[in-house]
Amino acid sequence: MATRAACLVCQIIENKVPSKKVYEDELAMAVIDVNGSNPGHCFVMPKNHYPILEQVPDAEIGRLFNISNRISSAIFESFGAQGTNIFVANGIPAGQTVAHFTINVIPRKENDGINLQWQPKQMSEEEISTVELKLKEQTKNLGFEKEEEKKPRIHAKKPVVLSDEEEEYFTKQMRRLP
């Protein structure tokens, strides 16, 4: 799914595939994941088609993660969640399944079957120092894009009402998700 026309997320954004929207502004949209890991699991995505994190402009990064944070707070309030995860899979080895940058906001409870833990990797002192030096060498160049940033405005959209026909199409479409 390299192009916008073939991108399922772009189709959701353009309303060609119906979805349950919880938030929308001119740059971003948030919808309920129909195959969520827990009820209330949301996707936050930029309206522009950026396949990976590195392509998202800084100004949009700020907005997208602030929206994610608002939704995370809303989940705490309305789902009695014991926790929330903000999760990004960037690239196929990281578990990315759709070629459109998305942020997962996931309500959590004890023993809910979600695993975001890891077994620590054993590394030698030399390996650690090497990776430290390599990353430090890179971060010397860290700078930010100059762009005026707008504050996200949270305003809930009216619920989207789907016809039976649309609903059926939606379900079919989402099953095609990898």
């Binding site: 969640a81 929330t84 995860n85 903000i86 999760f87 990004v88 960037n90 990353l135 890179q138």
Partner: peptide, 25 residues
Amino acid sequence: LSNFMLKGIDSHGTNIIVANGIAAG
């Protein structure tokens, strides 16, 4: 940082994770 990992330490992807609360890890 994600970008630097792709460029500097030959990573092929990254995960960004925030855990809010003990139940979230």
